[in-house]
């Protein structure tokens, strides 16, 4: 167990970096996912097709390939993902501002991948709203916008929060892959380093890494269970 205490700083900084990665990617995924979900329920066919294509393609790709395509494709598109180097943001999330683009690529890959699942979660929430609600709103003369914003989305949000939570939990777990794509010092990759080049005993390192991930995933899981139980009673 000495390994854990001796390398506490490695674990803590790895945890911190993974947390930063997750916060940024979750924000990005929620943003893109909401936009794609809005596209998929819009009355304009070409938007619906674009949204559906995006979801079908990304959802069936392994995250590994999304990562590969991001890290080989973006440089070829002449982008170092510099648009993510927002001055104020970079001072909080220090990896965003550095010259090496891998952290920004990881944020983009995770956001793009997770967004497809976020979209489906939101859409399932919208579908869970009883049709009578929207019909009643329409018969009261509400427009599409009013109907969506003040009747359907507030109720859809409540139904979507549980699937959204499991999507975010899955994303936190997926973030471990960033370590294999050049994001050094992330929780999984620091564990990898400790066992391979550091020559430390494996099991304590495994326990340390596991604790790091469980701190993020288990409370979120408990929170979701709570929400789910409350909804089950309310129904």
């Amino acid at each position: 167990m000495d390994v854990l205490i001796d390398n506490a700083d490695v674990f803590v900084s790895g945890f911190w970096l993974t947390l930063q990665l997750c916060v940024l990617s979750a924000t990005g995924a929620l943003l893109i996912g909401t936009i794609v979900a809005a596209m998929r329920i819009s009355p304009v066919p070409s938007l619906r097709w674009a949204g559906a294509t995006y979801v079908t393609l990304v959802r069936n790709l392994p995250l590994t390939i999304v990562f590969f395509l991001t890290s080989f494709g973006l440089p070829e598109l002449g982008s170092n993902a510099d648009f993510l180097r927002v001055p104020g943001l970079s001072s909080v999330f220090d990896r965003l501002g550095i010259d090496l683009p891998y952290f920004r690529f990881a944020v983009i890959a995770l956001s793009v991948y997770t967004a497809a699942f976020v979209c489906e979660a939101i859409r399932s929430g919208v579908n869970a709203v009883p049709a009578g609600q929207a019909e009643a709103a329409r018969s009261l003369g509400l427009t599409f916008r009013q109907n969506l914003l003040s009747i359907v989305l507030p109720q859809a949000w409540r139904a979507a929060i549980v699937p959204l939570g499991s999507v975010i939990i899955a994303m936190i777990k997926n973030s471990a892959l960033a370590g294999a794509f050049g994001v050094t010092g992330e929780l999984f990759s620091s564990g990898q380093n400790l066992t391979s080049s550091g020559g430390n005993p494996i099991i304590p390192v495994f326990i340390g890494i596991s604790i790091g991930y469980l701190i993020m995933t288990v409370p979120l899981g408990i929170f979701i269970d709570r929400v789910e139980n409350r909804r089950a009673v309310a129904r």
Binding site: K173, I209, G221
Partner: peptide, 15 residues
């Protein structure tokens, strides 16, 4: 359920 599958694979390999 809360661990990344990459972590279980990697440590299954190393352990």
């Amino acid at each position: 359920r809360g661990l990344p599958v990459l972590v279980t694979i990697f440590f299954a390999w190393r352990i």
